[in-house]
Design a protein around this nucleic acid. Structure first.
Lengths: 206, 206, 206, 206
DNA sequence: AATGAATGAGAATTCATTCAT
DNA sequence: TATGAATGAATTCTCATTCAT
């Protein structure tokens, strides 16, 4: 029997596919190119995936899963709101810098017809409820002022995180960030975002 | 004598192209479909534009131009920070609901190879400097607390606006918004965003 | 406007396609080969036909239409049974020699999944009822003996004609015929088939 | 010790292959499917056969061999022409109903490039000479009228049998038969064919 | 000797772009 | 100048065949 693709090779395919999809979008991405760069034949990709769309979906799942895992880790274990914020923001930056193609994939969802984004939506739902829950609790604890709607503000906060992801993971947004803050170092971004978010939610200066 | 395409016809092409690009993305969008819907021939589109990319670029320019015009109008004329915020937020929602394809175009920039986004970047630069200037001024006037970096916070604020655009203009983000706030009415969104932004920037409750 | 395909070119496509389909069967037949041999581009074939199957169907229709036309002409206008037989047999031989690919197409129907053969079946139904009617009439007129079932015998007769088509139109059957009668001239075949059929149906020698 | 494929397994392969080829035609038939259904690996099929074509050829050989055996049995041992006819016709119907895929294989010969049909032709040659001999003898015995050419008429008779095979073994021809005689029972077909053939050859009613 | 996963040539189909009218 | 049919390069996907185990 011809040796089955090693786990490493399978990972290669996934990794290269994410790069290709991230770079060119799901349409322009060429399966043959993914195969070439993974060092496998076109055929074997079609053994593992029904078609290009299924490969794309799997890349998406993988990207989002990893991303949400990282973000979840940041939420769990920390009890102060401030600590949670900081960990989320740092996780966001670190992940996006290390896994830019993953973020690009994530960003690509929007242009994708229904099927693919269902999964993404499932994860978003999780994030949404987590953030909302955290804010609701914080509001009850008096850490957040009472005139805010926890759901809506959770979204605003997530919006900020999402754009932070894009700003570190996608070329366009990275250049856009440069317009605003030149080559400010990341630590400064973290600090400012902390101030911004805390001010927004508490209505108080630190 | 055969006459040139009327201005109206040219506008038609642009408008239909934006719809098509917004709906199907730059790859899947079909020039022949744009021609059909504009009531002109494919050939004439290639008289006006070198190729599909150039047409896409032009659509992009147009979208962003209109968008930035609307956003600029919101900024100018108002002197209080609060008033400016409110006008920006309202402009954002109104425009995105009325011109979803424009927003989708804008969102598509990220996946676009260099050429196309230069123009977008030029506009962003304008926005960036405007917002930064406004915040800097507000800080000097004591309307914004001193520990914030006007540039970075202008970006955060613009991030919030950008995501608001997407949330009203792009399917994926619209559904995402629903996860956070169900079918909250727009007025409530405006109010909450005002609270959020003001708290963030002033460190004070209204 | 680039010149539309002339009728001649369209006929070319049909003719070459019938050859290709007849030679290689619907599966192996290559659209690119048909295009090359017709002197047109692949794309234009897909302008005129949705896909290879539709082209095949059209070839089939065309083949069978022409064939049934020729066979119909032979039936009509002649009143004696004998005369009708002779004309049918001669038409059969002439057509198959001149339009071998058409016969090969016809033969290919059997291997074709449903869609394509519906049309063929419609024509067969016509032939079946025509032959049956002729035999029934002949039986009433006493030209055919009473113990025969007109329907079944019409089929036997049509079977003989069909095999005659194949024997002249398809390589395999042509070689098979040679096994039986070497290079007997066609006139002799006609005469013998007349004797055979008349004997079968009348139970009398001429 | 690894053992060679048992005879039973080899027969399985042949049987399943005939089914697959009969069902889908030589092109669409998938070697992997044949392997799966035979309970062997793809590789082993290629140990026994150079390629798909060779497997197809072997199936063809096998089909035709079995068919011709059955038909031969019908000819031998019977002395009256009438008895021979009846046995042939009955054998034809029985075999085709029981071994439809074999008949479909047989029918597929025509679309097959040279190599495959050589063997079929060898068998046909045998049949041709047998039938011709029988008819010649019958003619000398005065059972068949003198104005018939035994070779040509043997072919006509074989044509009738061949079409009978197809009518019972191949979908298209089965439906075609229904157009002519609805759901006439087989016994009636046998009787009519006897009348038809005898009339044809003897020029007399029974 | 048997396995069955990997290979990669080949075929159908699409659609941006051209250019004769 | 506008037209829109023709072009053909490019891409996805299949499956006969190979060959390491």
């Amino acid at each position: 029997m011809l040796k089955k693709l090693t786990q490493e090779q399978q990972d290669q395919i996934l990794e290269r596919a994410i790069e290709e999809f991230g770079k060119n979008g799901p349409e322009r991405a060429a399966v043959s190119e993914i195969a070439r760069r993974s060092g496998v034949s076109v055929g074997v990709i079609y053994k593992y995936y029904q078609n290009k769309e299924e490969l794309f979906d799997h890349c998406l799942e993988h990207s989002i899963e990893l991303l949400s895992e990282v973000m979840n880790d940041a939420v769990s274990g920390e009890t102060t709101l401030e600590g949670t914020f900081e960990k989320l923001i740092r996780a966001c930056i670190t992940f996006s810098k290390e896994h830019a193609p993953y973020i690009q994939m994530y960003h690509a969802i929007t242009h994708t017809r229904d099927g693919a984004r269902r999964y993404a939506q499932a994860i978003e739902a999780l994030t949404a409820s987590t953030y909302t829950r955290v804010l609701k609790q914080a509001q009850q604890d008096g850490q957040i002022r009472g005139d805010l709607d926890p759901g809506i503000c959770a979204m605003f906060f997530d919006n900020l995180l999402m754009m932070l992801h894009f700003s570190y993971g996608c070329d366009y947004y990275r250049e856009r960030m440069a317009l605003y803050c030149g080559n400010t170092d990341d630590e400064q971004i973290v600090r400012q975002m902390m101030l911004f978010a805390k001010g927004a939610l508490t209505g108080k200066r630190p």
